[in-house]
Amino acid sequence: MAIVGATAAAAPDAAASRVSARTCYRVAGLTKTYRTGRRRARVEVRANDAIDLDVRRGEIFGLLGPNGAGKSTLVRQLTGLLRPDAGTVELLGHDLVKRPDAAARLVAYLGQDSGALDELTVGLAVETTARLRALDPAAARAARDAVIEELGLGELAERPLKKLSGGQRRLACVAAALVGDRPVLVLDEPTTGMDPVARRAVWSAIDRRRAEHGTTVVLVTHNVIEAETVLDRVAVLDEGRVIACDTPGGLKALVGDEVRLDLVWRTDPPQDDPAVARLACEAVRTGRRWTTRMDPGTARELLAAVTSGPAFDTLDDFTLSTPSLEDVYLALGGRHEGLVKG
């Protein structure tokens, strides 16, 4: 939440009052359909369906959604890689549909695959990327050393990417994306496969760039914790459409003040206990886990009854939590169980 405060404080600036000066990306009616297969077996997938979005300068904007929601398709159009079937993408005053190559000179992009860098060492991958962003040799080496230090990649600098673990390789790719300070970062699932230490290093590197240079970040994630921790605003995607777009707090307010009560039983709980009976008819069961959503007062009451009565002996674990973005996604009518909680 401190992150949101920081943006608000930076905003009141004379030039910033003009709408265009505050907008990084303006996306309207963006539509993309993939066509695969020959005539008879023709399959059409509408990966993006009339997407409207505004990303403000200097914000960390998230795209959250399950696999196949159309997040990668959207960011590939934001980076000039894919031509939309319909709609417009404006990046810092440049029309990306007409001039897709402008994106390469404003945006650093981290794609989902690392193919092109796999056989290079971490150091050379980062340095080459810096050179290809027009840094001269000395500046490229300095920038390489700085970002490798920043992300704690020093020990791995001489190792080829393909010899690293998935998370380490991803971190090296993040380093390549960050080198050469671009005003806009578009990162497609940057922290996939990373351990918590690496993940935090990425989040703080992103945050530092925003604080020091006003960098705008568009970050694709299907990780709810990541979304709640680092994003200023988040667009929730489902089946090619934006089903909601707000701050994480604002989105959670949509589901009201319901809380979630999770109970995990060691063995079958006593059915004659009234609290258990009440929970039994409301809970969604997955194995021995019961999940219920209810107002906070009732949840506290039932939890107190369960933990002080005979049912407590059969109880293994319980959690009472405020709504997460996953609850928001489901409450908004999301139809997939693809979001990651860890």
């Binding site: 003009r18 265009s20 000066a21 810092l92 005053g93 440049h94 029309d95 001039r99 190559d101 402008a102 000179r105 404003l106 080459t128 050179r131 290809l132 962003r133 027009a134 001269d136 671009r182 005003p183």
Partner: peptide, 23 residues
């Protein structure tokens, strides 16, 4: 294209052919 739109953000330098080729 860098001159497109009066308040468009100036584009960063493009990498010269030889520098790109060498890298």
């Amino acid at each position: 294209s860098s001159a497109a739109g009066s308040d468009a953000e100036p584009l960063a330098a493009a990498t010269p052919l030889w520098a790109g080729l060498a890298a």
